[in-house]
């Protein structure tokens, strides 16, 4: 079996449509993961021991079980309870929630790394809880978090093909549909792989540069 440019060009328009969905899913899911992750991180520092234990085991449960099965549960089970979401919404929700348990660790580490004196300084300025977070803690905690958060963005991007399993026509499913109707497997699948490489290698290099930059600033 040889590479055929004809097939490659034939499948490109469908792949282009799939790329749009892939990018949309990545962006929405990552925003959700960041917001939820920050929320979890802050809640995990709560004074209530019960809340901390419940949160710990909930996030561990989500982390230790496959995204694919979580996708199936949300996609197949919610309609039984009268909740109808589009496949895309289900996929983004699951990806976002799953990775929020990872980003929460990044946020937690970032917040922990803010020296204790900063909390005390905020207190001595008579800042309330909200002002302390907004003006003192987060501005110092966020810059070192950016490289790991960027890495999770890349990871989420590479997990989007799983959405194909719940009928979201993103890049991978677009290629698979073409393959199944034309019996051409080589070109569509190769193009999908190449596309992922084209996006993820430069972004990995970029993330590495970010990491170096933030490290230098510290010194």
């Amino acid at each position: 079996m040889y590479w055929s440019w004809e097939v490659a060009f034939d499948v490109l328009p469908q792949l282009a449509k799939g790329v749009v969905v892939t990018v949309q899913a990545t962006i929405v899911a990552s925003l959700l993961a960041y917001v939820l992750g920050l929320g979890i991180a802050i809640l995990k520092m709560s004074k209530s021991k019960l809340l901390r234990i419940v949160l710990y085991w909930t996030t561990e449960f989500i982390r230790r079980t496959p995204i694919l099965v979580q996708l199936y549960i949300v996609f197949y089970v919610l309609p039984d309870y009268g909740i109808f979401f589009e496949a895309f919404t289900c996929g983004v929700l699951v990806l976002g929630i799953h990775f929020s348990t990872y980003t929460a660790e990044v946020f937690r580490a970032g917040i922990d790394n803010v020296p204790k004196g900063q909390w005390e300084a905020a207190k001595s300025l008579n800042y309330n809880q909200y002002e302390t977070w907004k003006n003192v803690i987060l501005p110092q905690a966020i810059p070192p978090m950016i490289p790991p958060l960027a890495n999770y963005l890349i990871t989420m991007f590479k997990e989007t093909p799983l959405l194909a399993a719940i009928t979201v026509v993103e890049l991978f499913r677009a290629a698979d549909q073409y393959s199944n109707s034309h019996y051409k497997y080589l070109e569509p699948m190769t193009l999908v792989g190449v596309f992922f490489l084209i996006v993820s290698i430069p972004s990995a290099i970029l993330a590495m540069k970010l990491e170096k930059r933030f490290k230098q600033r510290k010194i």
Binding site: K158, P161, F172, M189, V192, G193, L197
Partner: peptide
């Protein structure tokens, strides 16, 4: 870079 950069599902297929 090849195996980390392209998605696992794509590699499997």
């Amino acid at each position: 870079e090849f195996f980390r950069g392209s998605s696992a599902l794509v590699q499997m297929f």
